[in-house]
């Protein structure tokens, strides 16, 4: 396997929602240009953990974080501005959420926050992003149509293009295909495989088949008797799904509990 550098280093991460301990002592590393899947039963904190990487938990009141996450060696909570962080770490959500604007303006929204572009520059950026998201051919003739007039699968690819337009290093995906039909799902999955050559992707999914299809590394989370989420094991996807080290992982992937 390629000798990829370590992009994210998570050490002893703990998270509280008010008094409730949501995540306990998480330690893991994310390699660059890889796809990492977070799997586990509902409520185990995998989406919460995903949101730690771009500090979206900051938007919720009463959230407290202990431990460190370093992006390329920089602590993202102490030494980095959330806005700068989110420029490098983008996110695609479970339910497609295009802005009620034209397709063009949707994609241009992100870049315009940081710099003033000329019309020609903007067109170039938008085209590149839409092409990377495999949407350009379908919408190039109607860029001024409202983004919400697209189908579900197209909307999700639009959201992906929107994220790609700011040229992040990392793309976080929170169950990106759970609201889509199988064909749209397959398209997004094949996109993930293509995109990993240029980006690092972390995907939360409750669909194990999806995790085994697209990811290189898989991290398995569980919830303990105190309703606190923790990391059980993580490693190469082939290993996790072929012969996991931990019996709890074995039981989960065999469908012994949901």
């Amino acid at each position: 396997m390629k000798d990829n550098k370590i992009l994210f280093e998570v050490e002893n991460l703990n998270l509280w929602y008010g008094a409730s301990h949501a995540l306990k002592d998480v330690n893991l590393k994310i390699e660059s240009n890889s796809v990492t899947a977070f799997i586990g039963p509902s409520g185990c904190g995998k989406s919460t953990f995903l949101r730690v990487f771009n500090r979206m938990n900051d938007l919720i009141e009463g959230v407290k974080i202990e431990g460190s996450i370093k992006l390329n060696g920089v602590d993202i909570n102490k030494d980095l501005n959330p806005m700068d962080l989110r420029k490098q770490v983008g996110m695609v959500f479970q339910k497609p959420n295009p802005f009620p604007m034209s397709i063009f303006n949707n994609v241009a929204y992100g870049p315009r926050l940081y710099k003033k572009y000329s019309k020609a520059e903007m067109i170039e950026i938008v085209e590149k992003a839409l092409t990377q998201a495999a949407l350009w051919d379908e919408v190039k003739d109607r860029l001024d149509r409202n983004g919400m007039s697209l189908s579900g699968g197209q909307q999700q690819r639009l959201c992906l293009a929107r994220t790609l337009a700011v040229n992040p290093e990392v793309i976080l995906m929170d169950e990106p295909t759970s609201a889509l039909d199988p064909i749209s799902t397959a398209r997004i999955e094949s996109l993930i495989t293509t995109l990993k050559e240029s980006y690092t992707i972390i995907i939360v999914t409750h669909n194990m088949q999806q995790a085994s299809r697209v990811s290189d590394t898989t991290a398995f989370f569980l919830i303990d008797e105190n309703r606190t989420g923790f990391l059980v094991e993580y490693g190469q996807t082939n290993e996790i799904f072929f012969k996991p080290r931990d019996k709890r992982t074995e039981d989960y992937i065999s469908g012994k509990f949901g």
Binding site: M208, Q209, F241, K243, T249, E250, I253
Partner: peptide, 10 residues
């Protein structure tokens, strides 16, 4: 039908 993993699949 089951898309089995791990011990089951083996």
């Amino acid at each position: 039908s089951e898309s089995p993993y791990g011990h089951y699949m083996r």
